[in-house]
């Protein structure tokens, strides 16, 4: 494991993230639109007696969405790096493919966790009262899901290697992953087929874990869908599995 190489791959991503204000701005704007426009609209349709106000219910899902988009985008930048040649600079360096994958996955983790933390900071406006320990827990969970989704994004980037495939990824992977993650509606209320799809979606368990941490009250039908320990195990397992698959596919295709 080449620590210097991993460090500099992450540092590059971070530097570009900080430099591109528009990227940060749109990354923050999207969840705000969902939270305060879509959320506020739908909350009128949801009966008041479900246990949790709808805008509070979708808060963990919106954090999950922030992570989903920014992690996949960060990893998909591999396609850009290939297209513009920069990937060659990394590939001819005396650095193992596995370190490159770890570096890329951590890049996604860093930028996604920062964005998730910014959204999390809105909790007082949604009516939550969170303690410092809860905040730390949510951030730890966010970092873990970010790592797992970023690794998943690297797998995608090795399979699709032109930007035309980007809209395919957007419409057929990112959006369904978001809608079927328990972000907008509890998984247990979904029709069977959709519930099964939700259950194989790794993001579901991340969103569920955040619900466990911040829904300190009786949430009734809107309560978390799985035991907390299951969420944690799934997040850790998928992180490991995705990073291994990413490493393998990178070695073959890189």
């Amino acid at each position: 494991m080449e620590i210097n190489a991993i460090y500099v791959i992450v540092a590059r991503e971070f530097k570009k993230f900080v430099r591109e204000r528009s990227r940060l701005f749109s990354a923050i704007a999207r969840p705000l639109l969902w939270l305060f426009i879509v959320g506020a609209g739908i909350s009128r349709l949801v009966p008041r007696d479900t246990g949790v106000p709808y805008t509070q219910f979708i808060f963990p899902g919106i954090i999950g969405m922030t992570i989903l988009f920014s992690s996949i985008f960060s990893s998909i930048s591999i396609i850009w790096d290939k297209e513009f040649g920069f990937m060659k600079e990394i590939l001819v360096a005396p650095v193992s493919r596995f370190s490159i994958v770890i570096g890329k996955a951590l890049s996604g983790t860093v930028v996604s966790t920062i964005q998730a933390a910014i959204i999390l900071a809105l909790f007082p406006f949604i009516g939550f009262k969170l303690g410092i320990l809860q905040i730390i827990w949510v951030i730890v969970i966010c970092a873990s899901i970010s790592f797992s989704i970023s690794a998943f994004g690297i797998v995608l980037a090795t399979f699709y290697d032109s930007y035309e495939s980007f809209s395919v990824i957007m419409n057929f992977i990112i959006m369904p992953m978001f809608f079927l993650s328990g972000a907008m509606y509890p998984v247990k209320l979904l029709p069977d087929i959709l519930r099964i799809v939700s259950m194989i979606n790794p993001l579901t368990y991340g969103v569920d874990a955040i619900k466990h941490i911040i829904f300190t009250f009786e949430a009734g039908r809107m309560s978390p869908d799985f035991p907390f320990i299951i969420d944690i195990i799934v997040i850790i397992l998928t992180s490991i599995i995705f990073v291994l698959i990413a490493g393998k596919s990178f070695e073959r295709k890189g």
């Binding site: 080449e2 210097n4 190489a5 460090y7 500099v8 540092a11 590059r12 530097k15 570009k16 430099r19 591109e20 600079e89 990394i90 360096a93 005396p94 650095v95």
Partner: peptide
């Protein structure tokens, strides 16, 4: 999107 200096520093880290 990086400066000349940053491109070279990146390389220096990559080659340890």
């Amino acid at each position: 999107d990086l400066t000349a200096y940053e491109n070279l520093i990146f390389h220096a880290y990559l080659y340890n």
